[in-house]
């Protein structure tokens, strides 16, 4: 068992935005893509709708025993770029790590030494896919899928369809796939091997 083998993804969203659902979907997609060790640990404070929230997703080829909150993530996913003005979303992000942001701006706007950045304008893309404005949690997973190689789009589509059964599954899948196609990568596809641990 090696602690270093764990891919740690910290999610920043707002209460009600569905960050936990998004992380749960990625957990399942990773699990079914050959990562038997997945844990999704929501952080609960005294939050209410709209307030910043965090959830920790850890992915590994082995069972994970440390269920503490992620402090040094490999990947940070941000569901609303305005959070950058309120929360230090990059806190502890490892050298060689990846920042995925829902934002209308290009990756260059967020460039930091040693950090890969991927951006997508999920608000607009998800609307095009037929989701109400502001529903971004499936779109952002498409951006994460594009920026990493943890799971492919077939797996993503299937897991989203099942999770959203009876709740616009078609539009949610479409939002993820459209975002996948329209994600702007600041560098190449992120490789866990590049992270300085």
């Amino acid at each position: 068992m090696q602690e270093q083998d764990i891919i740690e993804i910290r999610w920043h969203g707002r209460g009600g935005q569905g960050a936990i659902t998004a992380a749960k979907i990625v957990a399942r997609a990773a699990f079914e893509s050959g990562y038997p060790g997945v844990v999704m640990i929501p952080t609960f404070g005294t939050e209410r709708r709209g307030a910043p929230v965090i959830t920790s997703l850890k992915i590994a080829r082995h069972k994970i025993y440390d269920l503490s909150v992620i402090e040094e993530p490999d990947i940070v996913v941000v569901l609303d770029h305005l959070l950058l003005g309120e929360v230090d979303v990059g806190a502890g992000l490892r050298d060689g790590g990846l920042l995925v942001i829902n934002t209308p701006f290009m990756p260059e706007a967020y460039t930091r030494d040693g950090i890969h950045v991927a951006t997508a304008d999920v608000n607009s893309i998800a609307s095009q896919a037929g989701l109400p404005y502001g529903v971004v949690n499936t779109g952002i997973i498409g951006a994460l899928a594009r920026a990493t190689a943890i799971f492919d789009t077939d797996m993503l589509s299937r897991v989203i369809r099942e999770e959203f059964e009876g709740r616009r599954p078609h539009e949610n899948v479409k939002a993820a796939l459209l975002t996948f196609d329209n994600t702007r990568l600041g560098g190449g596809v992120w490789d866990p091997g590049n992270v300085d641990r």
Binding site: A27, V39, M40, I41, P42, F44, L67
Partner: peptide, 10 residues
Amino acid sequence: GYILSHTHMP
């Protein structure tokens, strides 16, 4: 509580 009650795992 939370650590297990709210954490998701297989």
